[in-house]
Amino acid sequence: MEIRVLWCVGGVVMVCSMVTLFTTPTTAYVTAFPEEPDIDGIRVFSGPCVYMCVLYYSGDGGWAIAEFLASLVPYPTVSSLLLAIIHAWEPKPQDNYWDHVKDNVAQVCGDFINQQNLQQVAVYKQDLLGLLRSYERADITSDGTYPDKNTVADSITTSVIANRYLTEAALLPSSMTVDFADIASVHTLILKDVAESYTITGGEVSRWWVDLNRELDHYITYAVWLEAETITWRDTKIQCLMDIDHGGYDEYVITDEVRVYTESCKQLHVSEGEEGPCTSFCDLYQFQVNRDDVTWLRHNLGVAREQWGRLKLQADAMAKLASKYYNPFTRDQ
């Protein structure tokens, strides 16, 4: 928060207005996975899922995958989760899923959105959809007419890394948070599945664990930086102008560029070191904005980051045991 003291004179009497905080209301984006029943007539899950499906305005792909990794939702298989994500990501004429992602991001970033990258990511995700469909259909062993999981997972990893600059943007990176969490979580899900698929029980450990361990390290490091960067950046968009002892009054004026919001508080002038009703006006506003933003980050990124951290403990251990083969069954390096 930037604080500016304008000028001073002397004073008496006070008028103080309340700061009204808000979160931009958005309409929930609801998508039911095909042919799946309601539970008691209610779909109550936040994120793409198989048995209960409510994709709120954000999409929540990263959140849902994190819950899957934590075994907190009733997905029977990775394949069923992928089918739900594919269904959620597919363009629908009646509603634009990615517009809802933008609406969600606007709660923290307002109009400070990397529109170019957001549009490019929407296009890229359609390409990624094709690879996810291929992976969902692939088996551990190829029948000669269709690639195996090992081959498709390699294509997905190459693609995600090559396009990482879109979600890990240099310009307004906070506005890419939801897409970063979505794609990083999908990539993590694929790497974990392929690592487990090609690890022989009681035998050789697939080298995919090394790749998973490396990518988790990258995603966790970036997520920690992004959370801190978002709060720091958000604070720079709040200004507090203080007009001290002007005609006997002190006036504090908050301007929030993200929320396009202005609020003021006026009090009888107080001497230095004394506190009046408006003394904490700016600090309280910033505290509440930070609290809201931390809650948003927790849901859209923090939950996923925590599960990546837990998974990395397993990946660390397995990577130390990994052979030089990605597919020990065929000895493919």
Results as ranks from 00 to 15, higher is better:
C240S: 06
S174D: 04
L129P: 03
E168Q: 08
L321P: 02
G47D: 04
A315V: 02
L69K: 00
D182C: 12
D235A: 09
A319T: 03
T188S: 05
V194D: 04
T31P: 13
D103R: 07
D243E: 15
K237V: 14
I113L: 12
L268A: 04
D111K: 07
P277L: 07
W63A: 01
P74F: 03
G47I: 02
M176Y: 02
W63H: 07
F33N: 14
S134M: 12
G61E: 09
R207V: 08
V253Q: 11
T295E: 09
G61Y: 09
D103C: 10
Q115Y: 12
I161A: 15
L191I: 02
G247R: 12
D60T: 04
P147W: 09
T295K: 10
I86R: 10
Y97M: 07
V294S: 02
Y261F: 08
V73F: 09
I200L: 11
A162K: 13
R133G: 10
K237I: 06
S264C: 06
R331S: 05
H299L: 03
L21T: 13
H269L: 07
T141L: 08
S197I: 14
E251W: 04
A122R: 10
L172Y: 03
F180E: 00
L172K: 03
T167H: 11
A106W: 06
Y249G: 01
E67W: 13
L118C: 14
P74W: 05
E2R: 08
V123Y: 09
G130E: 10
V105K: 01
Y146D: 14
T141E: 15
D217G: 10
A106T: 04
E168P: 05
L131I: 04
E196Y: 09
T27H: 12
V9F: 04
V13S: 15
A106C: 09
Q126A: 14
L268W: 11
V121W: 07
W7R: 13
Y325Q: 00
V54E: 02
D103F: 08
D40H: 15
T295W: 13
P25N: 07
W7F: 13
F112P: 02
A28F: 08
S264N: 06
Q119A: 08
Q94S: 14
L311K: 04
M176E: 05
N163W: 13
